[in-house]
Structures are given as structure tokens and as C-alpha cells.
Design a protein around this nucleic acid. Structure first.
Lengths: 324, 324
DNA sequence: TTGAAAGCGCTAACAC
DNA sequence: GTGTTAGCGCTTTCAA
């Protein structure tokens, strides 16, 4: 691999001149520049990013932490973040945290070792303290990592209220409410309190079920849905994330329980696959591209040393379907 | 941020000794080592990876290129690759190629600039030549990038034959066969020739429809399925990738066409969400974790300078469902 | 067993 | 305008 020295030698100039010519920084005579460019081309010269990185003390890489990128919400989020980062000249390094303990800490260590320039985290880990006193750019999605770390999330409280309204309008009196683990306080969990409150204010009864904090797999949703649909046979409504809601629909179909006549279902996230079902799932939609853009823009501001909003809340909306 | 010099100074030793002590390479007296470790700890010293990378001329990063990581097949593949890379001490940098032209070339340039140590590509790009004469580790999934680049894919030919067998056994005589673009020759496209051949050998008629090479979005599948289900109203079977198959099921449901009585559907990939439908989608399953492991293991061998198989073919299997 | 010193390939400051 | 040089922070000879 040709180095800048090879180019300089062949062009009969110093390395500084080559650097200036190739980067367009500082003065270089027009014919010197042309000669250097031609020789760089001929030698197929590629600047070594490793050396540049060391000098500049940056890599142009942003780490993205998610619990499970197989989950459609996170895969879409990740995709949009990656595209957004690319548009800003950055690269995306990824990290799945569930299934491997301590994964997130390893990733944070890499940030301290200058492997990447910043981290956007959407993980549900328990060890929030690890991000404190890091003094490096960190953006938290749906997670409160303490003072100084900007936080971006959907308006989950409004989402919870919308879901309650939908079920109440459909006449539900007795509903199941599947929430994430309460061991981790996240903005997204707020929707369940709001949901419960609105339902109860209107005289409906709500059973709230706590799910495991680190389980996102299809099989887990399947098991837990079957279990609770067995225990609570008299319910007339369910509010849970999309995959859970779809399993619920599936189980109802298999048991001959008519949806939405006998059972009303509202999902959360409104991921694309909910549109494949007949009836389409009624669900509260998060603005995933918007969240991705907000996270990336905030990261860029942090990298530029600008001041950023400490909490950004994006609106949610209703995906009208046929399950309510 | 404390550097190795700070540690050396505070410990009253040379930087070389600190390096040897911390890395466990070469001789260091026991008490010198203990003292160095203690001081490194107290100073919260973190070795700068940038400097290490420059010296070693490696980053420990592998790039993974996929057309669309929102597609459930690729999101699962990516997840397993990332986990597998982690187990081997490597990090994963990602790149979505569709929607942005030239994305893949940019990524290849980064490989040449030592941003990463190798690339695993599962993209459907048209410009295969870009990988030639690269002299860096490249592993191709479902893609033939020419001599010298190992290729890993499922036994798609067998998959095509299995699908044909399923539809023939169900009595199909007149089927729709949605294939990827024929402008790019990929092993995964082979399934459609095999499918067609087996169907026709058994007296059935096959309409093969070519899809766009770079479209993976839900809306595209929706449009194309509606379009062809309209044109060919007399078909009794469909073979296509899962999402297409699920839209097909959806359209059949809306039109009151009974599945599997009047229309038989076989998907491809058997991604998790196909299990959420009632009936479950009958589909040809690829071994996604197996593909991910094979790709990563092959990459590790290339990095170690070992000899690798130039073509690895993994078996497919049938996911029994209720759509056939 | 240890310290000093030579790079890894690049950029930028500073002479000329 | 251009060449020389001093680092960026680390690892690894090589002498001592």
C-alpha cells in the first residue's frame, strides 16, 4: 500500500506538500498540485485513516446500542440512524445487548478508548451509572441516564392515553395491560400508568402485567401471551407492544374469539408488519425516522460542542386498524 | 485523559515497562508490575486504541453490508453476525446500501483506508468489479464476486425444489413465481429456475415475475402483489419471499379467496413473523444463525491467513404451516 | 529486568 | 509556495 511518502518521493516534493495538495488545505502551486494528484492516482494512493485518526483524535464512528436489533422497532430505528449518520459523514458501529451480559459496559469502555466518538443508546440495561462521568458524547433514547445526558423519546404518556381512549370508545371494561419491567424506569413505561389511569377514571378495570426487562424474542411474547390469555379469560381488551398484540390476535383466532367483536386489541409502535394482518392491527405509532434523526442531530451537536435540549419529546399517532 | 506516559512518570519507570506490564508481554518484575497496575487503576488509565491501531495496522472492525437491515431476514442475520463477531473479539460496522447510490463503493473505500479489517457483504449491488484486486478480506453472502472471494449461501436450488414439491402435492397446476431481479446473478435466484423446472416437469404452468433488484420495502411488496394478483386471477399457487407471501395471504383474505383451499402459498426464509399468522405461513427456512456463523468464521480464517472453502452451501428446511 | 528510542502514517506549525 | 520536523500514543526492538 502506497504511503504519502511514496507519493512525495515520486513527485519530488515533501510530504507536507502532498498532504496540502490532497486535502486542499494551504497553498500549493497549480502545476505541483496537478502532478501530485496524477501520481497519487497512478500509485492508487489511499490515505491511512488510522494515522489520521490518531492525529485528529477521532474516528468518525458512532456506536449504537440496542437491546435486540432483530426486533422490528429497533431494526428500523437502527437503519434510519445509520442513514442519518452517513449523511453527516459518520459511520455506525452496532451493539446488541441482550443475551450477552456486560455487553454494554464493554461498549462504553470502547468509547473511553477512542474506538468511537460517541454513543447513542437505546438499551434497557440496568447499570445506568456506567454512563456517568464519562465526559464523552452520549445520547439516550427512551432512557434517563441522569443529568447531563440528553434524552429523546416519544410522547409515551399521550400514547397511553390514546390507547385507553380507543379501548374505552370500543366499550372495554376489563383489560390487560402488558408493560415492560418496572425495575428499569424508562419514559416508554410511562404509557402504562397513563393508560391505567384513564381506564380507571372511566370505570374500567385494568390488570397490569410486568414483562421481563431483557426479553424481546418472539417465543417469549408467545409464551407470556398464551399464559395470561389463559388466566384472564374474561377480558375484553388488550394493550401491549405490537408483537405481543399480534400473538394475542393469533391466539384469539385459534380459540375462535372474534376480534374486534369479543376482544379489542391495541398495539404499540405500529411497525410495518402490523399492516400485513387481516384485520390490520390498531396501534399507537412512534415516529421512528423522527426519533433516529433527533438522536443523530443531537449527537452531531454534542460533537460540535453546541448546547442541546436535555429532553426531546416526539408526538405519537394512531394507526387505524381493525382490531378495535 | 491519562496517557501511558503519565502512568510511567508516576510509577517512575519507562513507558516500555508500563506497556509490557499492562499487556502481559515480556518480563516485568512482580513488584514493578503491581505498582504499575495500581497507578494505572488510580489514574483511570485507558489505552488509546487509535495509537494501538496505527501501530498494529488493524482496527478489529468488520464491515457488514446489507441491502436493507429493516428486512427481517437481514436484521436477524446482522444480529447473529454481530454476536458472532463479538465472540471473536471483533466489532461490527454496518452499511445499508439501498436508497443511497454508491454507498457500497464508499464502504469499500473505507476498507482500503484501513477503517476496517474486512467486509462481509450480503448486498445486491450491481457493481461487482469493485471488490476485485482489493487484496483485503472479503466474504460474500449469497453473491458471487468472482474468483478468490469466498461465497456462502443456502442451498437455494434444493429450496426451490422443495417449494415446487409442496405446491405440486397440494394439487397446484398454475402458479405465480416471484423472483429477484435477473440482472444480478445470485445463488438465491437459482431457486426460481429449479422451482420452475420441477413444476413444469410435472405438467404445471409457471408464470415467473421479475422484481426490482433494489426494492425491499413493505409498500413495494404490497403494490407488486396486488398488481399481479389482479392480472392473474386464475392461479392456484404462489411462491415468493415471506413478506410478499404474507401480502398475498392478506389480499386473498380481503378478497374472500380461501387459503389454502383455493390458493396455496409457499414463502421463502421463514422469518419469525410468519409464525404470527393464522394460518402460519408454510415457508422454506434458511438457517440464518448458521449463515452468520459461517460468514464470520470464514472472515476469521481469512484474517488469520488460513485457506478457506470458496463455496459453502448450507441446507434449507421446510417450515410446515397452514398455507399449503 | 528495564529504559531509551525508533517507528506506525499522517497533519500542521514553522522556517526558508 | 514548499520542505522539514515535531508530534498524535502506543508497541517493540535493542542495549544496558
Amino acid at each position: 500500500m502506497a504511503s504519502i511518502r511514496d507519493v512525495a518521493k515520486k513527485a519530488g516534493v515533501g510530504v507536507g506538500t502532498v498532504s496540502r495538495a490532497l486535502n486542499g488545505t494551504g497553498y500549493v502551486a497549480e502545476d505541483t498540485r496537478a502532478k501530485i494528484l496524477a501520481i497519487a492516482e497512478k500509485l492508487d494512493y489511499q490515505p491511512n485513516e488510522l494515522a489520521r485518526n490518531l492525529f485528529r483524535n477521532r474516528t468518525g464512528i458512532i456506536g449504537i446500542v440496542v437491546p435486540d436489533m432483530e426486533n422490528p422497532f429497533f431494526s428500523k430505528l437502527l437503519k434510519h440512524m445509520e442513514i442519518q449518520l452517513y449523511k453527516n459523514g459518520y459511520k455506525a458501529m452496532i451493539c446488541n445487548t441482550i443475551e450477552i451480559s456486560n455487553r454494554e459496559q464493554d461498549f462504553i469502555d470502547m468509547l473511553r478508548q477512542n474506538v468511537m466518538d460517541g454513543i447513542i443508546t437505546g438499551a434497557h440495561s440496568l447499570q445506568d451509572y456506567a454512563y456517568l462521568n464519562l465526559n464523552k458524547p452520549v445520547v439516550a433514547m427512551d432512557r434517563n441516564l441522569g443529568p447531563g445526558i440528553p434524552m429523546i423519546h416519544s410522547d409515551h404518556k399521550a400514547g397511553g392515553r390514546m390507547a385507553a381512549r380507543l379501548l374505552l370508545d370500543a366499550g372495554c371494561r376489563n383489560v390487560l395491560n402488558f408493560g415492560g419491567s418496572f425495575r428499569v424506569h424508562t419514559p416508554s413505561n410511562d404509557r402504562h400508568q397513563e393508560f391505567k389511569q384513564v381506564m380507571e377514571e372511566n370505570g374500567a378495570s385494568v390488570k397490569t402485567i410486568e414483562m421481563a426487562w431483557n426479553m424481546m424474542e418472539y417465543d417469549y411474547y408467545c409464551r407470556i401471551m398464551e399464559q395470561y390469555m389463559d388466566i384472564y379469560r374474561d377480558i375484553d381488551g388488550v394493550f401491549t407492544t405490537d408483537i405481543g398484540a399480534l400473538y394475542c390476535l393469533n391466539i384469539a383466532n385459534q380459540r375462535g374469539v372474534k376480534v374486534p367483536e369479543k376482544l379489542h386489541i391495541v398495539g404499540y409502535d405500529a411497525v410495518d408488519m402490523t399492516r400485513l394482518f387481516t384485520p390490520k392491527l390498531t396501534s399507537i405509532a412512534q415516529d421512528i425516522p423522527g426519533l433516529a434523526t433527533a438522536c443523530v442531530d443531537t449527537m452531531m451537536d454534542l460533537l460540535d460542542g453546541k448546547k442541546v435540549e436535555m429532553e426531546q419529546i416526539l408526538p405519537v399517532s394512531i394507526q387505524k386498524g381493525g382490531t378495535v
